[in-house]
Design a binder for these strands. Structure first.
Length: 605
RNA sequence: GCUGUUAUAGCACAGAUGGUAGUGCACUACAUUGGUAGUGUAGAGGUCACGAGUUCGAUUCUCGUUAACAGCUCCA
């Protein structure tokens, strides 16, 4: 689908969506200005799936008003305004935008000597670097999707503006297709599907960000946890169990008290009480305390501590989201204490283990790597030691390059004590979250006075790698729900087989079948109520149970089972023993339905 | 924390411009003993999120609280 840019070039829509969406955002701004001349314009960029424009409106746009704005946009498209580019020196640019305070702020930040570019369509002019389409008529299909508050320049201390989100396409059919995909994606939303499948629930009286894991959700987490704890042991980790809370003295040493106090649940009052206890937001200081119980030789290192650690973080009220952002969660946590020489090898092993785990749970193709660095400009957010930051970051970058990881760098995203390798996953709404992080810590070992004796008998400060293997169980479960649209691989499914007798006559045989399945540790659920068999099968399918076993008899009165697998439909009469072995094998080998699922459930990009 | 939307039975939804609530599916009992949401009969289930105000009377109007959702900010 060709589109035409303002400078005369012809380019494919797929390759140049930002210019297209950016023009659409100008049309939105023009429409809003036409309808509400007193509203000030802020900014209106293209984003991943469309565009938005921020307005200083002192009002919220209702659905009816959004419809009116859409109608006005339609007029602008129909008017076929050509876009004209022109530039002005700074003084004239300020004069032109004198009634737009946000534009003035932007212009004032530009250097004195540059020519400032504007785009004009009809009588509407906007400050903009471009590029843009040649004519508004190209934006044939568009839709305003939502309206939300957003801080000016993303800073919560600034005024909250009103943001209108929208998307646009050169053809109506493309818009319809996109909106359909959006609807399909919403059906996979873990927050909806996870509740429907009875994996988790929330309760008003329990509180925000405190999801209840229902039996089925808890089962999945138990399967993952048993697997991860065994796997870590195989990889040389030793398990620790440390308290969920500690005196604030501990957090003062770690720096959490000065860097993370607002994020903690604190019991007691520093002013009044002798002792103040806080729930732990991280496991680090506890495992460090374990390390310090002994004097260590360089021969002992590396020491790899692992812990299935329940953590509590006092997130602000608007930040909670399903299982992705919660106030209490359980992290497959761990810390490796090693010598500088061992650092690279240990880091590599951590990444190898993570990659193996991601592949096993089937999301290795869905993750991306982010190298999260500090920012010298964010004073107070990080431990103040620029030299150590630069040094550790260069070590980490070297390791990442040796590993040939395809990562992108992000400034101002580090932990307060060191740079991170973050493993990112996009949810169905396209929002990216970190599921796993690996960090190199240059600061805490010294603060905690941790040491080892090197080959020369000298006391040295070790390096610490903070790492997770699976991330936090709740968030990972959320990602898996969305990845598989609730249709988990057999080994992860909370119910692998549902047994449905076609008639009460076969209840005994159904019990035998269950016994045979259970003897191989297959998770099985049986419905003893034979009536409404059709409904029961449909229900089991909606629950995305991997195998539905319809138990009955053929005309010869031989007992038989008829297997319906979620992926392949009815497989007819099967030998029970063969079936049991097959399911047991899928569980034992962690067989993954990834390819089937992609065909069946993943919406097209 | 900020902006906005929302809250009626297990689920999906109706409803009255203020007079204490309905439908479908699910659920329970009985009959039908059957094959991909079978049929019939009967039945149970709701302080209409919570608290205050206005009113003769509030599930409905007003205010507050809590929770859920979308986004911003912050984060695993």
């Amino acid at each position: 689908m060709n589109i035409y840019l303002q400078d005369g070039t012809v380019i494919d829509f797929e390759d140049n969506k930002p210019a297209f969406w950016h023009t659409a955002s100008h049309i939105l701004a023009q429409a809003v200005k036409n309808l509400y001349p007193n509203i000030s314009l802020a900014i209106g960029p293209a984003i991943d799936n469309g565009f938005y424009y921020d307005f200083d409106a002192d009002k919220h746009f209702s659905d009816e008003e959004l419809s009116l704005i859409e109608a006005e946009m339609k007029k602008i498209v129909k008017a076929k305004y050509p876009l004209e580019k022109f530039s002005l020196p700074k003084s004239e640019a300020l004069e032109l935008m004198k009634n737009e305070p946000y534009k003035l702020e932007l212009i004032n930040e530009l250097p004195e000597d540059v020519e400032i570019t504007f785009y004009k369509q009809g009588d509407f002019v906007d400050l903009c670097a471009g590029p843009h389409l040649s004519n508004t008529k190209q934006v044939e299909a568009f839709k305003l999707l939502s309206c939300a508050g957003a801080y000016w320049r993303g800073n919560e201390k600034n005024k909250m503006l009103y943001r209108i989100y929208g998307t646009a396409f050169p053809k109506k059919a493309m818009l319809t297709e996109y909106l359909t995909e959006l609807e399909e994606a919403k059906k996979r939303d873990h927050n909806k599907l996870g509740r429907e499948l009875k994996l988790f629930a929330t309760d008003e009286a329990v509180g925000q960000g405190l999801p209840l894991l229902m039996p089925k959700g808890a089962k999945i987490i138990q399967i993952l946890q048993r697997w991860i704890e065994d796997l870590e042991e195989e990889h040389g980790y030793v398990l620790t169990k440390t308290p969920s809370m500690a005196k604030n003295d501990l957090y003062k040493i770690s720096g959490h008290w000065s860097h993370y106090k607002d994020g903690m649940f604190i019991m007691g009052d520093e002013e009044k009480d002798d002792e103040v206890i806080a729930l732990r937001p991280m496991t680090c200081p506890f495992q460090f305390a374990i390390y310090k119980q002994d004097q260590h030789s360089y021969r002992d290192l590396p020491i790899r501590y692992a812990e299935t650690a329940t953590l509590a973080r006092n997130e602000s009220s608007g930040e909670m989201h399903g299982l992705i952002r919660v106030r209490q969660f359980t992290l497959a946590d761990g810390h490796i204490i090693c010598t500088p020489e061992q650092l690279e090898e240990e880091f590599k092993n951590v990444v190898d283990l993570i990659q193996y785990i991601m592949k096993t749970i089937g999301i290795d193709k869905d993750i991306s790597y982010r190298f999260s660095k500090w920012s010298p400009n964010s004073k107070g957010k990080y431990i103040d030691n620029p030299e150590a930051w630069e040094n550790t970051q260069s070590i980490m970058k070297n390791i990442l390059d040796h590993l040939k990881l395809n990562y992108k760098e992000a400034d101002d995203e580090a932990a307060f004590y060191g740079p991170k390798l973050d493993i990112q996953f996009k949810n169905v709404h396209g929002k990216e979250d970190t599921i796993i992080t690996v960090q190199i810590d240059f600061a805490l070992a010294e603060r905690f006075n941790m040491s080892y004796i090197d080959a020369n008998g000298e006391k040295k400060i070790p390096y610490i790698i903070h790492r997770s293997s699976l991330g936090c169980y709740e968030r990972t479960l959320a990602m898996l729900i969305e990845k598989y649209a609730g249709a988990f691989p057999t080994w992860l499914a909370p119910v692998a087989v549902k047994v449905l007798p076609i008639s009460d006559k076969y209840a005994d045989y159904a019990a035998d079948v269950c016994k045979a399945l259970k003897s191989k540790k297959i998770l099985v659920e049986v419905d003893h109520r034979a009536e409404k068999i059709g409904y029961k099968i449909r229900e089991a399918r909606n629950e995305r149970i991997p195998y539905i076993l319809v138990v009955g008899a053929d005309e010869m009165e031989n007992k038989t089972v008829s297997v319906r697998s979620r992926q392949k439909g009815d497989e007819g009469v099967q030998d029970l023993t063969a079936f049991v072995n097959r399911v047991a094998n899928e569980i034992a080998t962690k067989f993954n339905y990834h390819d089937h699922i992609t065909n069946t459930f993943t919406a097209k990009k």
